[in-house]
């Protein structure tokens, strides 16, 4: 599997460490009302879709950036790669 890194071009997936669903970027507020339940869902429950999946990969053997990769879990086809930092900043700006 090759991952098209936004800066470095096609890189072997072996250079990366996989974390999982990109929803892990959306950590709930631990001080909010009902935080225990929200954190349980955040930490343990997954959509685990068959098809398009947005997921976090860490370029550990490369430039050490976190990427949000959109990949099809049925075909392994990668359709979009973004820096996780950009995704998080955009989310902050939208709020």
């Amino acid at each position: 599997m090759l991952i098209p890194h936004p800066l470095l071009g096609l890189r072997d997936a072996q250079e990366f460490t996989y974390l999982g669903d990109a929803s892990l970027l959306n950590r709930p507020d631990g001080m909010a009302e009902g935080a225990a339940e929200a954190l349980h869902d955040y930490l343990y429950l997954r959509d685990n879709p068959a098809g398009e999946h947005r997921e976090l990969w860490f370029h550990e053997q490369g430039d050490r950036s976190w990427l949000v990769v959109t990949r099809n879990t049925l075909t392994h086809e990668i359709t979009q790669v973004e820096f996780a930092a950009d995704v998080a900043r955009q989310k902050g700006a939208d709020q």
Partner: peptide, 13 residues
Amino acid sequence: DGYNTYAQRGNMP
């Protein structure tokens, strides 16, 4: 293999 997948095949590494 270590990443989410429903494809019943893995990769070379």
